[in-house]
């Protein structure tokens, strides 16, 4: 099918964008287009105005500071994957990106688009949850920061207001040498994951876990941090008991059911991928240098 008619706008600056957001009714923002254009072609959405933000020059980019990584909302998944800086500071991101769409869609797909569309199976919002992200949004009424815990409102629904746009995402850096693991299960490579998990571990000199973060996605409508397990892990050495506890908690999530997969199977997979991600994160060779 073909997209329904709309009026097209391609602002060249943030100020012009904010002007359009203030003025237009029933407008939709177009980022990389890898989710929105299919929805337009299917006529699932029919905005009166399409605001293409691809020509605003300073919305893309990767900036590192001492304790944060700031990703411009329009940074392409391809560029995230290619970034040596990102691979060195947060290697799980490159690993996860291999599962985001395909070679031919990462060229245009953006991190901001993925985080505003919020498919439950999307890897990038899950990484944002893992890194305690802050979302920097702006609109005609000014800018505000939304913490990741407040970002996920429900199925395909973020905290972004109708007249706002996402400027950038700030991820909290983990110390050099942290362990990381990522695992997902999809029926075909590049398909939406049925369940996935990511884990970060920081170890003290005595091999005890100093800090842990675990996220499970594709299971509930938004990514879920296994906060209780993270707390249990701190101060312990890595063991089978720890893994079993994490897998059990992941398998107890309120899993969605759909035409392909029952809730019970999804819960089972949630436990499996959580176990795999944590096991990877604890492997000494996998700890980032």
């Amino acid at each position: 099918m073909k997209a329904p008619p709309f009026t097209y706008h391609d602002p060249r600056s943030r100020d012009d964008l904010i002007g359009l957001l203030a003025e237009l009714e029933n407008a939709k923002l177009l980022a990389g287009g890898q989710s929105l254009v299919p929805m337009l072609n299917f006529r699932v959405v029919a905005p009166d105005h399409l605001i293409d933000i691809n020509r605003i020059p300073d919305l893309a980019g990767i900036r590192l500071s001492a304790n944060a990584v700031v990703l411009g909302a329009m940074t392409r998944q391809w560029d995230l994957q290619a970034s040596a800086d990102l691979a060195a500071t947060a290697p799980i991101i490159r690993e996860a990106l291999a599962h985001v769409g395909h070679f031919q869609t990462r060229s245009r797909g953006t991190i901001g688009g993925s985080c505003c569309h919020l498919d439950p199976a999307a890897e990038l919002p899950a990484l944002c949850a893992l890194f305690d992200a802050e979302f920097d949004v702006a609109g005609p009424n000014g800018a505000r920061i939304v913490k990741v815990g407040d970002w996920f409102k429900g199925y395909l629904e973020s905290a972004l207001e109708e007249r706002e746009y996402l400027q950038s995402i700030r991820l909290r850096r983990w110390p050099a040498g942290h362990g990381y693991g990522f695992s997902e299960y999809a029926r075909r490579r590049g398909d939406f994951a049925i369940a996935g998990a990511g884990a970060l571990l920081e170890f003290a000199e005595d091999a005890r876990i100093r800090r842990a973060a675990i996220v499970v996605f594709g299971v509930e409508p938004g990514p879920v941090r296994l906060v209780e397990v993270e707390q249990i892990l701190v101060g312990q050495t890595f063991s089978e008991a720890v893994l079993a506890e994490a897998a059990a908690q992941a398998s107890a999530l309120d899993a969605m059911a759909d035409v392909h997969v029952s809730a019970a199977y999804r819960r089972h997979l949630a436990g499996v991928v959580t176990r795999r991600a944590l096991t990877e994160a604890a492997r000494p060779a996998r700890q980032a240098v």
Binding site: Y8, D10, G33, V37, N41, T105, S107
Partner: peptide, 12 residues
């Protein structure tokens, strides 16, 4: 870069 031509508008 490779791209899906059905997911890009000609104006883009």
């Amino acid at each position: 870069r490779p791209a899906r031509a059905c997911l890009m508008l000609a104006v883009q």
